[in-house]
Design a protein around this nucleic acid. Structure first.
Lengths: 244, 244
DNA sequence: TCCTATCCTTAACCTTTGTTTGGAACCGGC
DNA sequence: GCCGGTTCCAAACAAAGGTTAAGGATAGGA
């Protein structure tokens, strides 16, 4: 993985979401990034730590999660290449949740110091990164709605369509009928706020109903129309258009 | 309500959360703020709109909420004086949720233009406001956990303790046994992701158990220890210490 | 004062989700 | 090829929460 393609994954993401001029892009390109490989299902930063760098996902999938005193885990977000899932640590110094890989991943680490220098020198870049963290928050809001208001099958449908939409934004092309979704049923349950047994029930249900097949780390959309109807998915909250 | 005390509510909040130097404070003081009074239960900005100003709560209580196609409403956050609940609209131009008052409130409106000038001129202030939006996101994360993992009585206990903690941060003093909580039972249900009938059930339960009494827009803590135990409340996610 | 809204309260019943448990399939390491 | 762990699948039962419905309290307005 060469340097150029590492920065490219970040720029592709930022540019789908913000407008940057050539000088901003040049400044981002000159950021020092330390690339490291990570195994799957490993912690990157943990609750309570005080990281001194942020983590760019170059390749792979990561999740953020929180574990209650009672030992129950809630997955808060799923992250894909181009995301900086712990960008908030730039200003929130102590982690209030965990960040970990789902699958073997390539990560790029950028020091807080160099990010702070960059954002202070280039307010436009600061705005773009700020906006990125605000989109993160917009997705959290939608997840509160998902977990709070929708019945379990609709929750799964919604999360699946959100991930597809976000993958589309960084990869381009048409809406694929099949795509990666590297969560076990237990993790799906943790993301939806249900038990693994119930996750299994609704996955089976959606498969038997010919709506969507979630299995072996993949999603196969079987009936586009009924899936959309079930999920009530409206991509406005992803704020993918820099002009809007 | 004179100008000084309007800015003071903002500064008190920002200073519990970030470190500002005198020049930053002076710059914030010189922000043009238009003060207006709002009735209770009225929209301030609505889903889909493109506001050109942000709203500072000087006095009163506000909520943010989202309504699904099916017509169910989820309350996303509760806001108190000193908060700028729609600060995200500075970079996320189209609203993806509603902001409204709970009770008659005094609001200060600050134009995006003047905020953008300020943040570009003073990176420190930009960082403080950015941090504020990140704390907002940290609270969303905790709400996902609340709604996703905790049983209904614990959800109510948690939300009640969160609000008390945040009121304490802007008002000072000791933890009060009684404080305002101006939500109807229907709204409590909307915040917890349960029906009003079930909200009533658990409110009664907590009252009969001598843990906490939530009624007529007020909270009376009856048993501090058992309430804390039920809520599993840990204030770290509020990030109230600028040094940490 | 009464009228009307809204809110709170309660009960009976139903649906979804959790719990417990056990077995089958799969996978990497030896 | 076997073994131990994980993942997936499934059924029976229990509990939490949703639905429907209706009466009672409270507060503001005519």
């Amino acid at each position: 993985m060469d340097r150029d393609s590492v920065v490219a994954s970040l720029l592709r993401r930022l540019e789908t979401v913000s407008k940057l001029d050539p000088a901003d892009i040049a400044a981002i390109r000159s950021l020092p990034i330390a690339v490291r490989h990570w195994a799957g299902a490993r912690a990157i930063v943990s609750d309570g730590e005080r990281p001194s760098e942020c983590c760019l996902i170059v390749e792979g999938f990561c999740i953020r999660s929180k574990t209650t005193e009672a030992g129950q885990r809630q997955i808060l977000s799923i992250h894909i290449p181009g995301d900086i899932p712990d960008l908030q640590s730039l200003h929130l110094h102590r982690m209030d949740h965990d960040l970990s890989t789902l699958v073997p991943s390539t990560l790029g680490f950028i020091s807080h110091a160099s990010l702070r220098t960059l954002t202070h020198a280039r307010p436009n870049v600061a705005d773009a990164l700020w906006r990125d963290t605000l989109i993160d928050a917009a997705i959290f809001r939608e997840w509160i709605v998902n977990v709070g208001q929708r019945p379990a099958p609709a929750r799964l449908a919604h999360i699946v369509l959100e991930l597809r939409e976000r993958l589309l934004a960084i990869r381009g092309g048409a809406e694929p009928a099949t795509f990666e979704f590297p969560l076990t049923q237990e993790q799906i349950g943790e993301a939806l706020g249900i038990t693994p047994v119930h996750a299994n029930r609704i996955i089976r249900l959606l498969r038997e109903d010919g709506i969507v097949d979630v299995s072996r780390g993949q999603v196969h959309v079987l009936d586009e129309t009924r899936l959309a109807e079930l999920a009530q998915f409206d991509d406005r909250y992803l704020h993918q258009d820099p002009a809007a």
